[in-house]
Simulated scan of single mutants.
Amino acid sequence: MKPFDESMLVKTKEYIEEYQRRRGIVPSLRKIMRDNEGFFGVSISKVQRYVLELNRRGQLNYDKNEGIRGSEKLLAGKTKPIPMVGECACGDPILAVENIVATYSLPEELFGPSDHFMLRAKGLSMIEKGINDGDIMVVRHQNTAEIGDIVIARLNGEEATAKIYSKENGKYLLKPANSSIHEDGSPQYSDIIPEGEWEILGVVDSVIHRFK
């Protein structure tokens, strides 16, 4: 029998591990073949032979009936704890509840190493930016923002709201993303002109939305 190509054994193992890290599932033999066609051609049996050899060497777990078994360590990937600190208005400002109500582990590959916290959106003023009532906003903690960012701003030391950070005629504005109007033609959601003491708590990085 033809000897194994050691470099291809290494490449096959690395491919399987990277696939697990990125997708959260293990690849099928056919998927391995298609993505490495330059070596395996269209031979499933050749892929299986290499996978069986990796299994024999203890470098992965393969069962001919169940296929490649995923490594729990690889499937989990590197995670980071992110605290949920309450609710934030997507409408009129509400009191920011800043006690940690829960902590969740989220993939660092998706959210990066920056300091984050989570808030649950309350209201409909940001729906045109894809933030619905009840969604979870993953917020990168920082005190500065670029014009156009979706920020979490604290007003008057207590109230917090999620809005688009904007500037017009030399004044900073917190703008909604909902163009709905009342019957009289007036907007349902108005710009907020921060007055008095206010600060940016963070910039919304991602939104976790659950389909009903």
Rank of each mutant, 00 (worst) to 15 (best):
G70Q: 01
L74D: 08
A76V: 14
G77C: 00
G77Y: 08
T79E: 11
T79R: 15
T79N: 02
P81F: 02
I82L: 12
P83T: 02
M84G: 07
G86V: 07
C88P: 05
C88K: 03
A89G: 15
C90G: 09
C90R: 08
G91V: 07
G91Q: 00
V97C: 08
E98I: 05
E98A: 04
I100G: 01
I100W: 03
Y104W: 09
S105L: 14
L106D: 04
E108R: 13
E108P: 06
F111C: 08
G112S: 09
S114R: 01
D115L: 10
D115M: 10
D115A: 08
D115P: 00
F117Y: 09
F117T: 04
L119V: 09
R120I: 08
R120T: 12
G123C: 13
G123D: 11
S125T: 14
S125L: 13
I127L: 12
E128A: 14
G130A: 11
D135K: 06
D135L: 01
D135H: 05
I136T: 14
I136K: 00
V138N: 09
R140E: 12
H141N: 08
H141M: 12
Q142D: 09
Q142F: 07
Q142K: 15
Q142T: 06
Q142A: 02
A145T: 11
A145D: 10
E146F: 08
I147V: 14
I147K: 15
G148I: 07
G148C: 09
D149A: 12
D149K: 12
V151L: 08
R154S: 12
R154K: 15
R154C: 14
N156A: 13
A160D: 02
A160R: 06
A160T: 07
T161P: 13
T161F: 02
A162P: 10
A162H: 04
A162V: 11
A162E: 04
K163P: 01
I164T: 12
Y165Q: 12
Y165T: 13
Y165R: 13
Y165W: 14
S166W: 05
S166P: 05
K167L: 10
E168K: 13
E168V: 09
E168R: 15
E168I: 10
G170F: 03
Y172D: 13
L173C: 12
L174S: 10
K175I: 15
P176D: 09
P176L: 10
S179T: 14
S179K: 14
S180D: 13
I181L: 15
I181S: 10
H182F: 15
H182M: 14
D184M: 10
S186P: 09
S186N: 15
S186I: 13
P187Y: 07
Y189G: 13
Y189S: 07
Y189I: 08
S190Y: 01
S190G: 03
I192E: 04
I192T: 11
I193Q: 03
I193D: 00
G196K: 12
G196M: 10
G196E: 08
E197A: 13
W198K: 00
I200S: 04
I200T: 01
I200E: 05
L201W: 02
G202Y: 04
V204A: 10
V204G: 01
V204I: 13
V204K: 05
D205R: 04
S206I: 05
S206G: 00
V207K: 01
V207I: 15
